[in-house]
Each structure stands twice: as C-alpha cells, then as structure tokens.
Design a protein around this nucleic acid. Structure first.
Lengths: 117, 117
DNA sequence: TTGACATATTCCTATATGGGTATATGATCT
DNA sequence: AGATCATATACCCATATAGGAATATGTCAA
C-alpha cells in the first residue's frame, strides 16, 4: 500500500507546509481564494487543491458569496493533533519543572473541568 | 514533485499512525525493537523501517546493548508540532472561555518565562 | 564453528502525491 | 448574449511511499 491519503486525517493534511500556511492565513478570519493566492504567492490552482484537502478533513468550511468562495478556518479538526502532541509537552516545557508546577497544573485542570462551557 | 519525504520533518514522520503508536509505546521508556514488534503486532521489518524514519527526524535515539538495540523517545522533535497547533487551542478549549481566563493564562506564561529552569 | 537470536536492509509493487499548464464551471456586468 | 472575473477540475509527470517477502548483518551461546 502507498502512503495514506492526505485527506485521510488532519495529521496527513497538515503535513504539507503550504496547507499549514493556509490555515494560519485563515486564522485572521474568512477569506476568498484570491486573497490567499496573493498572500502565499502560489498559483491559484494549487491553492484550490490545498483548500480541497483541508475541506475534506474538515479543517476549513466554505461559503459562497457572489462569485467568490469564502473559506473559514475550522479549528476543531486540529484538536486530535493537539491532544496527541500535548502528551509530550512535559518533555521540553519549562512549565513542567518541579513537582509544585505539576500539581498546580492539575489543580487548574480540575477547575477548568468543573465549571464547564 | 511528489509528496515531501516522510523524513522531511516531524509533521510528515508523525502523519503515519503506526509511527505515533511507536512513539507512544516509547513514552514509557527505552525499549528494544522486538518489544515494539510484540506490542504493536507488526512485522519486524516494518517496525525497523518506521524506527528509521523516526530516527531521521530526531524523534528517537538508539543505543546498542548486546544484540539488542534500545530505542528511546526524544520528545524535542515534536515541539514544532506542538508549537504550531497550540496556536489553535483556543478554538476548542474551554480554558479559553472568558477574558479573565485569557488574562490568567497570560499571567502564568509570564511567571513561567520569568523564572526559567 | 555452528547455530540461534535480534535487527536492518533490499527488492518489489500499487498508489497517491504536488507541481505545472490548460481548461471547465459559475457568477457578474455591459 | 458576450466578456470578464473567481474558482475548480483535468491531465501529465516524477517521486516516495507502506507493505510484503526474502535476505543480510551482527551478536551471543554451545
């Protein structure tokens, strides 16, 4: 079998740097394709193709407005990545120095969970 | 051009689920290849190949011990992924509800930076 | 030395990729 | 209707892949 499709999941979709750039560009808000084309300096077809991949994994949503298509970031699709990599954060973060820090983290997490929404 | 090599960076290396499983398995500590083979239920050559990719991106280190090779996790290689995806955390995390929470986060970050390691 | 064990590498194949270029679709304006 | 703008798709190509099977390399034991 070949490598998993780029549309298989967020991990694969985001492995391509240009697609991360696109998501970063959309972090500021909804934008039409040509905006991204100008900002990233890529040929328009490439941008459209990358956007398709991002759409298939749910990382962006589209909305038609006149002859433009406005793309919007959907961060939820990136949560699995965050969830996975977060488990390794303690291996480099200064925030995890010392037991007191760890305990403080735990306390805060409890607070957060308790008063949800 | 084809897709970037899996060894191009951590993003590409980790896009393959088996490789994430391997890293997860190594989170508990150094382990020889056959241990991973048994735990993951993959053919040995595959595990060796995945380990090679992980080694090329710096996500694991190796050490020879007798006829075994002990692989060890190197979490630092995953930091770029964490750094990138962390910017999107607020899009789904409850911890970012309300401005007070945000300010508290900022305060904590300052503390953390101030008294480093 | 011979054999068993542990791991890595080689060879094969089907497949999907990203980039380039050209063209199709669709909406708006005149 | 025709022209123009905005975006998507189709087509071609070189390339690297993950998986499978076989084999090579290296280490230890008898």
């Amino acid at each position: 079998m070949a490598r998993a499709a780029t549309t298989a999941d967020a991990f694969n979709a985001v492995a391509e740097p240009r697609r991360r750039e696109i998501l970063d560009a959309l972090a500021g808000g909804e934008r039409p394709v040509n905006d991204l084309v100008r900002e990233l300096g890529l040929p328009q077809p490439q941008v459209s193709k990358h956007l398709r991949v991002l759409r298939e994994v749910g990382a962006v949503d589209v909305r038609d407005q006149g002859r433009e298509r406005l793309y919007r970031l959907n961060g939820h699709a990136l949560k699995p990545i965050h969830d996975w990599v977060k488990g390794y954060e303690r291996l480099w973060s200064e925030r995890f120095d010392g037991l007191d820090q760890v305990l403080e983290e735990l306390k805060q997490k409890e607070e957060g969970d308790g008063d949800g929404k």
